[in-house]
Every structure is written in C-alpha cells, then in structure tokens.
C-alpha cells in the first residue's frame, strides 16, 4: 500500500478547509479506505473539534517532529470508523516548529500503512502553507464564490504551480442557489472560468455543516446536501466519474421533504 497525500488549502481563511478535510477523510474511511488526517494549522488547531476528537489528544504533530513521542502515540483513532486517524496540531506553538522536510519525513513514515493522508493547511501563503504542500501528491483548493476568496485561490494556485505540485483541483464551497438565481453570486462556471483549473466538487451552503460541527460529527456521516456533496468528491478522488448534482432540484426536494416531516410532526 502506498498512500496518496492530499493537501487541502485555500489561501483565504474561513472558506471551509477544515470542514472539507474532515468530511473527505470520513467519507473515504466510510468507503473502507485507511485514512489519516493531519492538522497542519499549528497554533490554531480545529480539525480535532470538527472530527469530534478534541478530548482525546495527548500528543500532537510538534511532539512527533521533536521526538517527544512516537508517531503512533500522536495518532488518535476514531471510534465511529475503523480506519480513520487524526494527528492533531500543537496549540501552544507556531508554524516555525515544523519544517517542510519534517512533513515529508512524517508522511513517508505513514505512506505504507494508509490509502490516503489528508493535510489540512493553514490559511495564508507563508511557512504553514509551505509545510502543508511539501509532501502533497495532490492539492485540493477550496474557495467560496466570493471575490476575495477566488482572488486568494488564484494566488495559491500560482504558488502551487511554482512548487510543481500541480495546478490542483477546485472545490467551490457554500454555494447559494437563491443568490445565483438572483444574479448576486458567482456561479461555479464563473469561478472555474476565471481560475481555469479542474473542478472536483461543488458544495452547497448548508446549515447541516454548522450543526455537524456543533456535534463533532462530520456531515458525511448523516444525510444532508453538503454531506452528499462531500461523499461525491471522495468517490471522485477514487477515480470514479460522479456527475455533479443539480443543486437547484436537490434543494427544493430537500425543502419539500423537510416540510413534509415538519408537517407530520405537528399533526
């Protein structure tokens, strides 16, 4: 077995990198793949919270790099899925505690045991980003359909190309069909047109994501539009051809279903 190392990055903060990392890791583990997710956002760790594993952290990424513990000791095993692990970021240190070479060495130690190694990149274009993409075989760029996010994504794509990591694949997150219909939100086609890289996923804006983060239970484990979108991306990562869902139809269908349930609960 030799793992594919996939780095999730964006440039701009708050567009959904950590949510994406958590959901893709869970989705692939649910498909029977051996997955480890590494939080490379040192000093601002969050992947543990989104995965619901925050109260089980003993050691972290920096402890491994500095030899305080063995790699195995820093790997937290998920209780819901058999083959999902998390290596959390350190919270009381900063990005300079780890080097790009450290990240390559760390992932090399994991490659034989896993199918997928996900790395959640910090925002920005500095050392943390360089650490995160150094070992990457593939890079996924997350953006939202907003000018500032798309602009930063373009910067990041340029840097990824300069590092010869590819142009990467694009995930457009938090799409709102109502705003697109009104002409007040860039459509996926616009974003893809401007950035000119391959599209691998479209994720609708979905309350289920906030609820899932509240609970520490990634949306892919349950049924929601966003969860479905992440499961589709996971299958595309496995090389399957999965058509993009028609969000307009799906959203109205979901509304219809939920209205039906709400109605029946009242009666």
């Amino acid at each position: 077995m030799s793992a594919t190392v996939i780095t999730i990055t964006s440039g701009k903060g708050g567009v959904g990198k950590t949510t994406t990392t958590a959901n893709l890791s869970v989705a692939l583990a649910a498909l029977g793949k051996k997955v480890v997710a590494i939080d490379a956002d040192i000093g601002l760790r969050n992947l543990d919270v989104v995965l619901g594993l925050e109260n089980r952290i003993v050691y972290d990424l920096v402890d491994v790099v500095e030899g305080v513990c063995r790699l195995r000791q820093a790997m937290i095993k998920d209780k819901r899925l058999n083959e999902l692990y998390l290596i959390p970021a350190a919270q009381s240190r900063d990005k300079t505690a780890v080097s790009p070479e450290d990240m390559v060495e760390l992932t090399d130690q994991l490659r034989d045991e896993f199918d997928f190694i996900f790395i959640d990149s910090p925002a920005g274009i500095e050392q943390g980003f360089k650490n995160a993409i150094a070992p990457a075989d593939r890079v996924l760029i997350v953006t939202t359909p907003e000018m500032s996010a798309v602009r930063d994504a373009d910067r990041i794509i340029g840097l990824i190309e300069a590092e010869e990591k590819g142009p990467g694949d694009l995930i457009v997150n938090r799409l709102r069909i109502d705003m697109i219909k009104r002409g007040d939100m860039l459509d996926t086609a616009d974003v893809v047109d401007v950035l000119a890289i391959n599209l691998i996923g479209i994720v609708p804006d979905d309350e289920a994501i906030i609820v899932s983060t509240n609970r520490g239970r990634p949306a892919t484990l349950d049924n929601s539009l966003a969860g479905q979108a992440f499961r589709n991306i996971a299958r595309r990562l496995l090389g399957e051809t999965v058509p993009f869902v028609n969000l307009e139809e799906e959203q109205s269908f979901f509304k219809w279903i939920s209205r039906l349930f709400r109605g029946s609960r009242k009666s």
Partner: peptide, 11 residues
Amino acid sequence: ASSEVAKKRLR
C-alpha cells in the same frame, strides 16, 4: 447583476 460586476472586477 452584482455577480457580473464581480466577474469583471475579478478578471
């Protein structure tokens, strides 16, 4: 539409 404006400015 503001999305058209955004696209032009982005380019």
